[in-house]
């Protein structure tokens, strides 16, 4: 009886490990990409409504993960109508030539149960920078939620050139917030 119980426990544990779930479907409609920027001391909130994600993430083998997020920059909402039109121009995002921004990573490191470090490449406006961002992952009923909050410098990507290059009007640091919902099914 003791052995039977032991075997049972063992198989269940093995099963859950084998079944370990790989999250592959990003649901953009249930996801958000937002940003905060500071203009003359005023913190403004913005976001992107259009983006797509490609994902392979298994919490049991994070080192094999792959993630790629493409953001349609024209879908930007800066919080100010006039600025939405302005920010697509060559001085800013130059969307005519660089319509998408991409974040891509094959290096996900688990720090603990929920916290990860994601090292990857961020490409905006033709400029690629290596960045490492913190992320959290939690799952319930096969629905996984990734969040990440980090900050980039707009000057690293030549966002805001010419008259806008100085930081006294629009601060250099831009806070980025990701919230991605993914499922295992495909």
């Amino acid at each position: 009886m003791k052995y039977l119980l032991g075997a049972l426990v063992l198989t269940t544990t093995m099963l859950t490990t084998v079944q370990a779930q790989e999250y592959t479907q990003v649901h953009s409609e249930a996801s958000h990409i937002r940003f905060n920027y500071t203009q003359m001391g005023v913190t403004m909130r913005g976001g992107f409504s259009e983006f797509t994600g490609e994902l392979r993430f298994d919490p049991s083998t994070p080192e094999q993960a792959h993630v790629m997020i493409d953001v349609d920059l024209v879908s930007i909402d800066t919080g100010i109508r006039e600025a939405d039109a302005e920010v697509t121009k060559p001085e800013w995002l130059h969307t005519a030539e660089f319509p998408t921004a991409r974040f891509e990573s094959d290096e996900v490191m688990a720090l603990d149960e929920q916290n990860y470090e994601v090292a990857g490449r961020l490409t905006i406006k033709g400029q690629t920078r290596d960045i490492t961002v913190p992320a959290t992952f939690s799952a319930e009923n096969g629905i996984g939620v990734f969040t990440s909050h980090f900050s980039i410098n707009r000057s690293d990507f030549a966002i805001g050139e010419g008259a806008w290059a100085s930081f006294d009007m629009v601060a250099n640091a831009v806070d980025i917030e990701f919230e991605l919902t993914a499922t295992v099914d495909d």
Binding site: M40, G41, V42, T43, M44, G79, I80, R81
Partner: peptide
């Protein structure tokens, strides 16, 4: 309403009495 909060002299934020509504 236009979504641009007022920060007096860039230091003192005034409360937004209205939510953003273009």
């Amino acid at each position: 309403a236009k979504g641009v909060p007022t920060v007096w002299f860039g230091v003192i934020p005034l409360p937004d009495l209205l939510a953003r509504d273009p």
